[in-house]
Structures are given as structure tokens and as C-alpha cells.
């Protein structure tokens, strides 16, 4: 792991060609890694072992989708209905959350909510859908429709993916 470190002041910062406003100082350490003041650090190994290579690819695909969503929603009123620009804390949490996802789950759609929070959505059809929004204070706000059944609630982002979230992701694809 390279140990280069760059400290950035709160400013408009380009990540993979996408500009958005960072509200906190952010530390870049090593290759492709982000650490926020709130203590999250995301690091991708320079040489991923083959056993986790597919996981790395999943993370990279999610990261690319996330960057695209951030680009599209980097300004206020991006939807014409008064939506807030993407929230930088939610963006960082989304990156961290993506690292917790198992490698064998389908890649979610990623978009930004009208309140600026990043949402991961697994959409099989109108009545087979599950979403997780990265809220403030490390909240994972989830909701799902599974045929006639439904669920919603809040979990907290920690060092493991909450079981409720994982179970519901599987539930979308088992209907």
C-alpha cells in the first residue's frame, strides 16, 4: 500500500471527473482510499488477491455508479422539483456501505434522493423492490416491497452489514 497522503480543505473537489462539495476535510491515503473526519477509511489494495478480485470489481462498479449519480446531482434542484445536492457525508457512507456488500449480490441501482441522500436500490419489478438510503448519523434507512409483504425501518452503519439489510436484499430476488 502506498502511503502518500493528501489533506484537502473543504472545497469543490473532483473525484473521477465528478465535482461535488465536500463539507468536511478528507484524507486520501494510499491508492484509491478515502478517510473522512468521521473515522471512515476505505482502502483498495494495489494488488487484490484473486479470491477477492470479484469483490473488488463489484466495488469498482458500484463506485463508478456512485460517481455518476454524484455528478448528475451535484447542484441544487437537479430534478427541477427543488431537490438538494448530494450530501457529502452520505456519499462517503455509501462508499463504505458498498464495501460491506457480499460479492454475490446483484449490483444495485444508485441514485440520489430529493433530500441529497444516496440510495441503493435493488429493483426486480414494481412490487419486488428494496432500497437503502444512507442517512445522516450513519443511519441506513430501508424500505421494501415483496409482493403483498412490506417492510421499512432504520439500521446503523457499523463494521458489518446489518443482517436485516442483507436478508431483505436476498428477499427481493427470492420472490
Amino acid at each position: 500500500m502506498k502511503q502518500e497522503m493528501l489533506m484537502l480543505e473543504p472545497t469543490s473537489y473532483g473525484l473521477e471527473g465528478c465535482s461535488f462539495l465536500l463539507l468536511h476535510d478528507i484524507e486520501i491515503r494510499g491508492y484509491n482510499a478515502i478517510k473522512s473526519e468521521r473515522g471512515f477509511r476505505l482502502e483498495y489494495p494495489d494488488q487484490a488477491p484473486s479470491a477477492v478480485a470479484s469483490g473488488t470489481r463489484l466495488a469498482e462498479e458500484i463506485k463508478a455508479s456512485l460517481a455518476k449519480a454524484a455528478d448528475e446531482c451535484s447542484v441544487e434542484n437537479w430534478d427541477g422539483y427543488g431537490a438538494k445536492a448530494i450530501d457529502s457525508s452520505s456519499y462517503v457512507n455509501a462508499l463504505y456501505f458498498s464495501q460491506l456488500l457480499p460479492v454475490n449480490i446483484p449490483i444495485p441501482e444508485i441514485y440520489v434522493d430529493p433530500d441529497g441522500a444516496v440510495t441503493f436500490e435493488w429493483y426486480v419489478g414494481p412490487r419486488q423492490v428494496f432500497s437503502v438510503s444512507m442517512g445522516s448519523n450513519n443511519e441506513l434507512v430501508y424500505a421494501g416491497l415483496f409482493g403483498a409483504n412490506k417492510t421499512h425501518g432504520t439500521e446503523y452503519l457499523d463494521d458489518e452489514l446489518p443482517e436485516t439489510i442483507l436478508d431483505n436484499i436476498h428477499r427481493v430476488f427470492s420472490g
Binding site: 434507512v141 424500505a143 421499512h152
Partner: peptide, 15 residues
């Protein structure tokens, strides 16, 4: 008030 509940309603309306 709960965002999770609003998201569920949004899913139901969309469906």
C-alpha cells in the same frame, strides 16, 4: 415523519 415509511409509501405509489 419517518423517512423509511415515506420511502415505503413511494414504493407503493409507484407500484
Amino acid at each position: 415523519e419517518e423517512k423509511s415509511e415515506r420511502n415505503l409509501i413511494a414504493q407503493e405509489l409507484a407500484a
